[in-house]
Amino acid sequence: MSRQMLLRVTEVEPLTPLVTRFRFEHPERAALPLFSGGAHVVVEMPDDGVLRRNAYSLISDPYDGSGYEIAVRREDTGRGGSRFMHGQVATGTDLRVSLPLNLFALDPRAKKHVLIAGGIGITPFLAQLRQLERLQQPYELHYAARSQAEAAGLKLLPQTAQVHVHISENGDRMDPGALLEGQPIGTHAYVCGPEGLIAAVMDAGARLGWPPSALHAEAFAAPPPGEAFRVTIGSTGAEIEVGPHQSLLEALEAAEVEVDWSCRGGACGRCETGVRACHGRIEHHDHWLSPEERAAQTKIMPCMSRFRGDRLVLDL
């Protein structure tokens, strides 16, 4: 498990009807570890008997240890973490927050950085902007939102010549190809937002002959929903039910079965769990197991992967 700190919510500010900014500080005002732009933290939410853990990009200044800030969009269907943040967290609430982890870092070798955000995908760039300002590296940022009212980033972005806002309701649609065209050699592009936007930027980059290593997309994934399923704990024979919007890891935690974890996104390998018997098919959603290991169905990564079938016995 990654190291956690107990932090206090000190500011809650609605940015739009759906998106709210939260600021966390140490209760004794101790300095928090610094981080790099693009990092996220995992926030632990004790939600009525269910312990939820969601990852959120840090939006505050990476070099300011006085507090961490995140922006959370309320999703009325789905995993419930964002509803908890919106409904039950107020100034003074104490929550457990992990140390920062960066799976979407800037490449310091770039001659210039082009940051492309869609909707709530603006969040990792808010911290990166401050880092780029501090290190005085050339950049431009393009932020696309459907409407003025929904554009949470507007309140948080500096009004400088490098920041471009595209509001589609006003007829200003972002054109990823045009953004990449004519950029100096050695430029890196970063994209975070809906899948369609990521694909459009990647396609445009490939078409214009950009090296793949100069195109970056936020790879961090939340556990996918699916049908409910059951697993059996090998050592005790206990049966555990996994809900449609719950991950296997969350269900194990709720049942107090101990499993190690770190990224909760299928990337770090920490939660790898052996499978004693599998009658059915494991739906692997991680980036950790090799194709051979997946096919063998003798291991599962509970933070991301699900199961479909009669019986799955875990080596726990």
């Binding site: 990654s2 190291r3 570890p33 981080f35 140390l99 920062p100 982890l101 770190s262 990224c263 990337a267 770090c268 390998g269 920490r270 950790w288 090799s290």
Partner: peptide
């Protein structure tokens, strides 16, 4: 032994404060 694949993945997951 595939030791390097696993070691690399482990290193990539090393976090601050850990």
């Amino acid at each position: 032994m595939g030791v390097f694949d696993k070691a690399l993945k482990f290193l990539l997951a090393v976090q601050q404060g850990q």
